[in-house]
């Protein structure tokens, strides 16, 4: 199951990191706006929440951590 979670997190990371830079910026996140039912403000909130060190870019590790937390919450519910 851990591999599946990692695989999913990486898939989602790649959706955000279209240019395959290895990190996701605020702009990358805002680009998802037409595709996802979230407002620009909400996408900004998602970015800030995932950006644990607050350096303005999301690493795969930060993304995976956020996704794991989300899954744990879902399981708890």
């Amino acid at each position: 199951p851990e591999l599946t979670v990692l695989g999913k997190a990486q898939e989602f990371f790649q959706i955000c990191d279209l240019e395959d830079k290895g990190f996701v910026t605020r702009q990358d996140m805002q680009r998802l706006h037409p595709e996802l039912p979230l407002s620009l403000e909400e996408l900004e909130k998602v970015f800030v929440t995932l950006d644990a060190d607050g350096n303005g870019s999301l690493t795969p590790k930060e993304f995976i951590t956020g996704f794991s937390q989300f899954l744990l919450e879902q399981i708890a519910l």
Binding site: P37, L38, K45, V46
Partner: peptide, 29 residues
């Protein structure tokens, strides 16, 4: 604690975000 409040709101948004990604993935062929 304002941080606690911000955290709670962000969690909901995060769940919304990942749920959207999940349905986007499963929704496409």
């Amino acid at each position: 604690d304002p941080n606690m409040k911000a955290g709670a709101t962000s969690e909901g948004v995060l769940a919304n975000f990942f749920n959207s990604l999940l349905s986007k993935k499963t929704g496409s062929p």
